[in-house]
């Protein structure tokens, strides 16, 4: 479980998060939703220690993120930020290979190579693994980054808008794979997602944020209601249903 207790955060003088307390259950796919500027990415980055925690406490499976050595955390959680530009010229296989670095620290063994090939396969990259990052499309690059986090083989997977640049088929495939990891692989995942119906269709647990505060928290059917979402986005929405899951409608 990820336990967030009393976390506040500022960037410069601008307050981003106000005294957040929340929990993300283990063995579930948690979606962070909310309007632009709600603080979702910042919260995810704090959990993944990409930003130092200014106030409050964050624990991942009992490990205090602020105090646990970063090498140890790299075996517990993998985080993929939105900024995926890389200056050095790498082949896709090399990039995914870095996902194994926390395990081998520079000396990859056969098990690491097998894990890299498995990750490349899992995200449909095996055919283009020898190409350079700047020679593939934005969606393929995005998938390579996700495959790298996947290869890190951690209990927790934190993804900041992983669906960026992905077409419908690959977005769906990614969500299905994530849910498979959670349901069958015993892993846990947290993702920031903009397209709310991906959260509606695949998430087990939803945290809705607005203006740096938690607006609602719970299973999809509890959070994805007309009252909660209309208030969250200041836009009238109606909720339908599709294959037993909520479906958020906002056409006219």
């Amino acid at each position: 479980m990820i336990q967030i207790t009393g976390v506040s955060h500022r960037i410069g003088t601008a307050p981003i998060l106000h005294d957040i307390t929340a929990a993300m259950p283990a063995g579930r796919l948690t979606a962070l939703i909310g309007p632009n500027g709600a603080g979702k990415s910042t919260l995810l980055r704090l959990i993944g220690r990409l930003e130092p925690c200014q106030a409050g406490r964050i624990e991942v499976d009992g490990l205090d993120v602020g105090r646990t050595p970063t090498e140890r955390l790299a075996l517990k959680l993998a985080i993929l930020g939105q900024q995926t530009h890389i200056a050095s010229r790498l082949r896709l296989r090399e990039l995914v290979g870095f996902g194994r670095w926390p395990h081998h620290r520079g000396r990859p063994g056969p098990a690491d190579q097998a894990a890299v090939e498995a990750a490349l396969d899992a995200f449909g990259l095996a055919g283009i693994a020898g190409r350079f990052l700047d020679e593939v499309s934005g969606g393929q690059r995005q998938r390579a980054h996700i495959a790298m986090s996947f290869a890190q083989a951690t209990d927790w997977l934190l993804l900041d808008e992983p669906l960026n640049n992905l077409d419908m088929a690959h977005a769906r495939a990614l969500m299905a794979r994530l849910r498979g990891l959670v349901r069958d692989g015993g892993r846990s995942a947290v993702m920031v997602v903009h397209e709310i119906n991906y959260a509606a269709a695949w998430a087990d647990h939803i945290i809705a944020m607005k203006d740096g505060r938690i607006a609602a928290e719970g299973p999809p059917e509890a959070v994805l209601t007309e009252a909660v979402l209309s208030g969250l986005y200041d836009t009238p929405v109606s909720i339908g249903s599709h294959l037993g899951r909520p479906l958020v409608l906002h056409h006219a």
């Binding site: 993944g48 220690r49 990409l50 970063t70 090498e71 140890r72 955390l73 790299a74 075996l75 993998a78 985080i79 993929l80 930020g81 900024q83 530009h85 890389i86 200056a87 050095s88 990039l95 870095f98 996902g99 670095w101 926390p102 980054h145 790298m148 986090s149 890190q152």
Partner: peptide, 11 residues
């Protein structure tokens, strides 16, 4: 060389 975010994520 991967940049800050990926490098931190890798420990």
């Amino acid at each position: 060389a991967l940049g800050r975010d990926p490098a931190v994520s890798l420990g």
